[in-house]
Structures are given as C-alpha cells and as structure tokens.
Design a protein around this nucleic acid. Structure first.
Lengths: 222, 222
DNA sequence: GTCTATACCACGATAGAC
DNA sequence: GTCTATCGTGGTATAGAC
C-alpha cells in the first residue's frame, strides 16, 4: 500500500503522510468547513487531532499551507473527474454537467458527514488571501483550458474572451448558489424552501446551458 | 443636508456620525477592500484614521459591527437604485440590468480610487462570519422579494422555487465574475485579457437574461 | 525524522483614569 | 469622548525529548 511511487514534487500533498499529518488534515477539513478558515485556531485543530500545537507548523509550515493542503486534497479529484466527464461532452448541457456534477456528487457522498464539503468548497471561492487564491488558480488552469476549448467547439461564433467570461459566470453561479442555498428560505421569508441537490443540479444545468448557448448557431438571440 | 430626519432605528449606520466615526468608516472601507476583513487590524485602521485603538470599540462596539457598518453604507444605496431601475423593467434583460447596473456604475464611479468598491462587494458575498452574513441577508430581503416578483411576471410558467434559484444564479454569476475578473489573464495563461467593465456588463446581461428566460414562453427550451 | 513544551509577539476587547 | 493599561487568545518559532 505504498504511495511513495507517485512522487509529485510540486504538489502540496506529500507522499506517505504520517498518521498525525493525515489526522490534522481530516480535522482541519471538518472544522474549516464548519467555521471558516480564520475562525478555526491551530490550537483547536491540534487539540481535536490529539497532536501538539507545533505539529501543524512542523508538518505544513504554517496555517496558510495547511489551508492550501486541505483545499488541494479536495479540489484535485474533483478537477480530475471534470476532465473525465468532459471527454464525452458535445453540447452545452453536457459541458455544464461535466463541470457541475463532480462537485454535487462529492457533496452527496459526504452528505452523511453533514455535507461539509460544500461549505468548504464555497469558502474557497472567496479565498480571502491572495496567496491561497493564487494557489487555487493554479489548480484550475488545466480545467479552464479544456473547458474553454469544449465550449468554443459546442458554441461556435463566440470569441475567446466571451467564452472565458461565460465559463466564469458558470463557475460563479455554481459556487455561489451552493454557498447560499441554505439562506434561500431565510431571505425569501418562507416563500421558498431550500431545494434538494438534485433539483438544484437540474435547474443549474438548464440555466447555465441556456446562457452558454445564447447568441450562437442553435441558441436564441433574444 | 441633515441626515438626522431619516431616523432608521434598525440600521447599522447611526445618524449624525461624529467626524472620527466617519473617518474610521472611510479608512476601514479602503483597507478592508484591499486586504480583506481579517487581515486588517483595528490598530491599522485607527492609526491611519488618526484615532485611538479604543475608538472603534467605542463607536461601533466591535470589529464585527464596524465591518457591518462599512458593508451597509455601500449596499444600501445600491439596493435602493436597484429597486428604482426595476420599476421600468419589463423583460428579462432589463431585470438583469436593474440588478447588475447599480453595482457596475458604483464600480466605475470609484474607479479613480482604484475600484476598491468591487473588491469590497465581492468579499461580502463570501462573508466568513455567520453574524455578518445574516446581516447582509436582511439587507437583501426586499430586493429579493421585488426581483422575484418581476422575474415571475416576465418569465411566465416558472415556479417560485425556480425563480428564486435563477435569481441566486444571477447574483452568484455577477458577484463571482466581478471578484475573479482580474484573475482571468492569469488562469487563461494569456489566451484572454481581463475585459473592461462595459464588456463584462453586456456579456453578463446577455448570458443571465438567456438563463432566466429559458423554458418560458418566449425563451428557447433546448 | 517525529513530536512536544514553551516562549514569543500581535491581535481584539475591556476597564478605568482623564 | 478619548486615552492608557491590561487581559485572554491567536499564529509562529525554536529548543530539545523520543
């Protein structure tokens, strides 16, 4: 069960993580999702993980790097799955689905744990720190490149600039709606219940696919 | 030009702000936009405003309340303008424009200052703190109510749930694209420059209006 | 190497003097 | 209304135990 053969030099996640290191990641992931990156102290993390305060600094170097490691461990498989799904996608609906579904599937998978994955993801989209946000940007470079190409093929007549913008709208709508979904009931004053993830998914794909296609060959122009 | 007649008991902004209080708000607004809420210390704010460290706690009660006051001072006029513009809106494009334009206009107005307004707005959408985010939610209640009604009228056949979701997508796409607009060049590796605000505005309205209309009477169904 | 104990320094908040 | 002093807690750095 040795993972040492992987050898990913640039990755934040080191190979063969020590038991303590892994426990720190698990605890940090849960606490960060629940309370946000800044609200969780290293003392709270290390206490719950049964480790010493200095363990974080030893294994990760800083709280910032711990945050980056937690994010990377979640984002990497999501983005890999996105690229897999994109292979068979030909129209706008399928492209949007390839972008959205891995996130929602992961959300459902971690549903037993209270779905803290969604909270964590949406906290990332608003990364308060320039260093963290730059790290995330690197993680998304390949995904952006491939999805821009796919959208360009499926929606002929759009400039590269417009395609990039529409992908940005797509990512934003997804991230924000996941983040604020639970606030729908509050802000609508009872006129609307927070829908399930499957409803959200279908509505999101319909909405975003329409936006991607508009003004192109087989989309309406309004 | 007395503001004292307004008397808004529930508002965070008190009437007749003292000179120190106003200076604290101005400095905090700029620093928060540049570095984020958590990165800016009260010591930095009070030092730059020429006030004492304890001044923030005296005038606002806490750093949290200072943040809320800064946000409210920006959001209130935006939301008022949104409701004004919504009056004359009949179709999806105009509704989206009524939601988006006040934000972009304010962004251009503060362009001379480095456009820190946009940074501040987008930091709000990710409010790390439950208390702050609840405060923001209250600010948007009336806006949500009116825009949901308008969308329902302009896009017949949509359930209240779907209308709420589509408004959520709209708000998310706007907020996130404004937030990450400057990262487009980095993440696209030079294949795409960050567009101007006018280009962003037009593309946003087109994209979001298409999403709002899809599946309704005069939208396409795909 | 892995981990612990402990000592920093900066932060937000508060009390009390002026 | 404003300032000084101080408290508890935060992230970080280091020395040394295993």
């Amino acid at each position: 069960m040795s993972r040492c053969g992987v050898s990913s030099p640039d990755s934040v996640i080191e190979e063969a993580p020590a038991a303590t290191k892994r426990r720190l990641l698990d605890v940090a992931e849960r606490l960060f999702a629940d309370q946000g990156f800044d609200s969780v102290s290293l003392r709270a993390i290390t206490a719950e993980a049964g480790a010493n305060l200095a363990a974080v600094n030893y294994h990760f170097g800083s709280k910032e790097s711990l945050i980056a490691a937690v994010i990377a461990r979640q984002v990497e498989p999501i983005n890999r799955r996105r690229l897999e799904l994109l292979e068979g996608a030909v129209d706008a609906r399928e492209i949007v689905a390839a972008f959205v579904d891995p996130v929602l599937q992961e959300a459902e998978r971690s549903g037993a744990d209270g779905g803290h994955f969604l909270k964590l993801m949406s906290r990332c989209t608003a990364a308060r720190d320039e260093k963290v946000s730059a790290l995330i940007a690197v993680q998304f470079r390949e995904v952006v490149r491939r999805f821009v190409m796919a959208i360009g093929d499926a929606c002929p007549g759009l400039s590269a600039e417009v395609v990039h913008l529409r992908l940005l709208f797509t990512a934003g709508a997804m991230a924000q709606s996941l983040f604020h979904l639970d606030k729908l009931a509050m802000v609508s004053e009872g006129r609307c219940e927070a829908p399930g993830l499957d409803t959200l998914r279908d509505e999101m794909v319909t909405f975003l696919a329409a936006g991607l296609e508009t003004g192109t060959r087989d989309g309406d122009v309004k």
